[in-house]
Nucleic acid binder design. Sequence first.
DNA 1: CTCCGCCTAATGA
DNA 2: TCATTAGGCGGAG
Length: 159
Amino acid sequence: MPTVHAPRIVSTSWGLIEMTLSADGLTGCTLPWIDAPPVESFEVLDAGSDAYSSYVFDLFAGAAPQRPSIGHLSGTPFQVRVWQGLMTIPTGETRTYRELAAVIGCPQAVRAVANACGRNPAPLFVPCHRVIRTDGTLGGFSSGLAWKRLLLAAEQSNR
DNA sequence: CTCCGCCTAATGA
DNA sequence: TCATTAGGCGGAG
């Protein structure tokens, strides 16, 4: 019988962020879909003190947190390669979808790479929000562009 | 095989 | 700047 790991919850003014865990680490992170900010300011209301919650708190605070252990992320081999590529982008930096495609050795597969970003099972931890279009616009974000804007602003505020 | 998509580059207005 | 178009590729059915 497998060990049951309680999900970790971070409560914010934009809603709840939920993280799911397995024995080897984080396996998922879900956030509410936010198109436009629902309140004046974003704030973390309750974060807990475990490594995952702390990472999320620090990320929004504009710090450069140490990423906790990531568990097995379920996806196709190609998707896993893309997600591993994402993890090499440092906090506070961005890459274009084209650059990411080149990094993982598939320079022609830009659009497929973007699709894999969109299937990222653990946003915030696997930083797909650091990937933008070649023309400088943001591109998309699975849970709504408001999150992508917020995260990029937080990560770049500290430089 | 067909259709679709967090893209890109080129072209025209 | 915006709208259109074609190209390339993985994933789902």
